[in-house]
């Protein structure tokens, strides 16, 4: 059984207008997505901004009110508040935020910030709590003198590591990492990501890794889901997505990964333009008449794509011929 099973999750925000302020329409931030997160693995959720990936993450951690669908954890649907409470759900599921500065309370010392989940869930005595905080700081590579400082006294990378330390404080089973490194520069990104990987190995934590950076996702994730306009367009293993992309949206995202090899600049440019051309020509085939992705169709046991049946058959066939 998977650690967390998300089934047909929908988060819709009402649009109110008119004299009586009635609900006239809705924004479908997340529109019926399903996937499972296994214990100990990193699940990548990729998409452009506004595609609903952060909303999905917030729903899983219990910060967002879900319109319909279910998120099963230990056999209970945690979209209901009572179930979250009875399971002590946030003891097991924590979150790392994108903006490290605003996610740490500027008026609290580092000790109080990291100890906050410990105080709420573990009720340790003073000394062992302090020891735990010191050990957590050590694990993310910070010195003991950080203990009584305030968040603004640290650099962005250090702050994000403090955020990681807080998230792992209660030894959770799943951490939602909502673009944890997108606000950091590249050298610091690598540092924070490696700390996250190290912690995953040591404590056997699952990550739901939300990102728009396919390079980072490739480094971190075993399974990947591509999201577009609130729906999943393609899910599969790292190999499925990077080496056998089926959906044009995935292909387009992959073409957008910047290439550092200067000598082949012209070829890369030509290739990107070609992908863009195909995207423009074939857009109608891959999206329904409202511009939304089709339901997922299974291609291989690990790989599913949002395509109309006929096109899926055809592409599957082509894939087999190629193979």
């Amino acid at each position: 059984m998977s650690l967390v099973e998300i089934k047909n999750l929908k988060v819709h925000y009402p649009i109110r207008s008119g004299f009586f302020n009635r609900i006239t329409d809705s924004v479908n931030a997340v529109d019926g997505i399903s996937f499972n997160i296994e214990a100990g693995e990193t699940y990548g959720l990729v998409g452009e901004s506004g595609s609903g990936k952060s909303t999905t993450g917030k729903s899983v951690v219990g910060l967002e009110k879900v319109t319909s669908g279910s998120i099963m954890y230990k056999g209970k649907d945690i979209t209901k508040k009572a179930n979250r409470k009875s399971l002590d759900y946030n003891h097991d599921v924590q979150m790392i935020f994108q903006d490290s500065l605003s996610s740490l309370n500027p008026r609290k010392r580092i000790e109080d910030i990291i100890a906050e989940p410990l105080r709420n869930f573990e009720h340790l005595d003073k000394d062992s709590e302090k020891l735990r905080v010191l050990q957590l700081l050590d694990i993310v590579g910070l010195d003991a003198d950080a203990l009584y400082k305030y968040p603004h006294q640290f650099s962005g990378g250090q702050r994000q590591r403090i955020g990681v330390a807080r998230a792992v404080a209660t030894n959770p089973k799943l951490i939602i990492a909502d673009e944890p490194v997108s606000a950091l520069d590249l050298s610091v990104q690598a540092q924070v990501l490696n700390f996250m990987k190290k912690i995953q190995r040591e404590f056997n934590i699952s990550y739901l890794f939300i990102s728009h950076d396919l390079g980072v996702v490739r480094h971190m994730c075993n399974n990947i889901a591509i999201m577009n306009n609130g729906r999943l367009v393609e899910i599969g293993t790292r190999d499925d997505i990077y080496n056998h992309p089926m959906h044009i949206y995935t292909k387009r995202l992959l073409a957008a990964i910047p290439e550092t090899n200067v000598s082949q600049r012209a070829e890369h440019r030509a290739q990107r333009l070609a992908v863009e051309e195909v995207y423009r020509e074939q857009q109608d085939k891959y999206y329904d008449k409202d511009g939304l992705a089709y339901p997922l169709v299974q291609i291989t046991p690990t790989h599913s794509v949002a395509l109309p049946e006929a096109l899926a058959e055809q592409l599957k066939h082509e894939g087999e011929v190629q193979a």
Binding site: K58, V61, G62, L63, D88, N90, H91, V93, Q94, M95, F97, S103, L104, N105, E116, P117, N120, F121, G163, R166
Partner: peptide, 8 residues
């Protein structure tokens, strides 16, 4: 949000 997920 972080305080909420920390169970406060």
């Amino acid at each position: 949000a972080a305080a909420k997920t920390s169970g406060t």
